[in-house]
Design a protein around this nucleic acid. Structure first.
Length: 246
DNA sequence: GCGACAG
DNA sequence: ATCTTGTCGC
């Protein structure tokens, strides 16, 4: 592995500028060596949702993370950063487009969340290095993915009731779950990112489901970055006013 | 070559 | 991802 590749892969300040798909693939294969999928041990007190919002026909990105109390799932703080994309959207390489800005979002959070849920996948990925795993390895944090559509692998349609689930398999390996979060809705795809097991990711996802199809962390993150893009929320780290109802 | 394809 | 209109259902 070329030293430059290893260097860029382990430098949070990297913006993946001028990176080719071939280089990106090598970085993913390198980062995979540092994946840790052993059971999560601590008690979860906070969980964050991470997402970005883009303007059509613009390279401006509005990235953010919303920290929720757990298991209450109430927003207690959020971090927002306006940035620019330097990498195009290519299926399988989403991390290179979103991670640079999300690292800035994460850096300005004074008290880090126990777990971070991403709008995308963890190991449910051709090279087991979806955005959640990529971010988890770079920062050494516990992460998981929750995608709205299947990226890779095969699965049997889960039962039609809330909490029914099935396994997603890719090349003989179990890489995630198709989870029905509500009755009669399309399943979401759950997978561990880093520092947690397959089972942990499923249990956490189920505990994060509120009144909607998407688990609260990513649903709130999506909501907040859109409010940020439309000017209703400002850049920076903010604690949610206890008295304000969201 | 063909089909699939997170956000 | 974003944009946009309409429809269905609690």
């Amino acid at each position: 592995m070329p030293a430059e590749i290893t260097q860029i892969a382990h430098t949070p300040e990297s913006n993946y500028d001028q990176l080719t798909i071939t280089d990106a693939t090598k970085i993913q294969q390198d980062l995979k060596k540092y994946l840790k999928l052993s059971p999560y041990r601590k008690v979860i007190t906070t969980i964050a949702g991470a997402d970005i919002s883009l303007s059509l026909y613009s390279d401006t990105v509005y990235a953010g993370m919303v920290i929720l109390s757990f298991p209450d799932l109430q927003p207690i703080a959020y971090s927002l950063v306006k940035s620019h994309t330097v990498f195009p959207y290519v299926p399988g390489y989403l991390a290179f487009r979103e991670i640079p800005s999300l690292l800035k979002v994460y850096e300005q959070i004074p008290i880090k969340p126990d777990v971070i849920m991403f709008d995308g996948n963890g190991i449910l990925h051709a090279r087991r290095m979806g955005i959640a795993s990529h971010f988890g390895v770079l920062t050494g944090t516990a992460t998981m993915g929750c995608a709205k559509k299947k990226l890779a692998g095969q699965y049997e349609e889960p039962g039609n009731q809330r909490n029914d689930f099935s396994l997603v398999t890719d090349r003989r390996e179990i890489v995630g779950y198709a989870l029905r979060t509500k009755n009669d809705v399309k399943p979401v795809f759950i997978s561990p990112g880093n520092k947690m097991s397959m089972q942990d990711s499923l249990e956490i996802a189920i505990k994060c489901v509120g009144k909607h199809r998407l688990p609260e962390p990513t649903r709130r993150a999506h909501e907040f970055v859109n409010l940020f893009r439309t000017g209703e929320l400002k850049e920076g780290y903010h604690e949610v006013n206890e008295l304000r109802l969201f």
